[in-house]
């Protein structure tokens, strides 16, 4: 099983990034082989639709599970279409979140927000 997570830097000791679409990197962690791969999030600097593009990256990575503190409506539509489960991250490091998932302590992300679009000039 492959787990995807928005992360601020390429280190397993760091925390999960606070948002999804604008996260600098995504960690793709293989639970069986314990192998971690960091993918650049090319959507981070997008003018708009960052969630959709970031979600496409997650789907293309072959992840089965996404752990994130939050997720917008459009991104969730993409992720769910690919049958990827979205779990809400807990406060703590990336390692702690993986452990929490293994111990089935993470809950499914329920509060999908409508997005933070259209702030500032267009």
């Amino acid at each position: 099983m492959k787990i995807a997570m928005p992360v601020e830097s390429k280190s397993m000791d760091n925390n999960v990034y606070q948002s999804f679409g604008r996260s600098p990197y995504f960690l793709i962690y293989d639970l069986q082989s314990k192998e971690s791969v960091y993918v650049d999030n090319s959507a981070a600097t997008s003018q708009g639709g960052a969630g959709i593009k970031a979600a496409q990256t997650i789907v293309d990575s072959g992840a089965n599970v996404l752990i994130t503190p939050r997720c917008g409506e459009n991104a969730a539509d993409v992720i769910k279409s690919a049958n990827i489960k979205i779990y809400k991250s807990v406060v703590g490091s990336i390692n702690e979140n993986i452990k929490a998932l293994e111990e089935e302590r993470l809950s499914i992300l329920q509060d999908i927000h409508a997005g933070f679009h259209h702030h500032g000039g267009r």
Binding site: G49, I52, Q56, N74, V78, S81
Partner: peptide, 18 residues
């Protein structure tokens, strides 16, 4: 450039509002 399209599960998704 607006990321209004995604290709998921052999299906092109169009986000009308974007």
């Amino acid at each position: 450039k607006f990321n209004a399209l995604a290709y998921i599960n052999k299906n092109l998704m169009v986000f009308d509002d974007i």
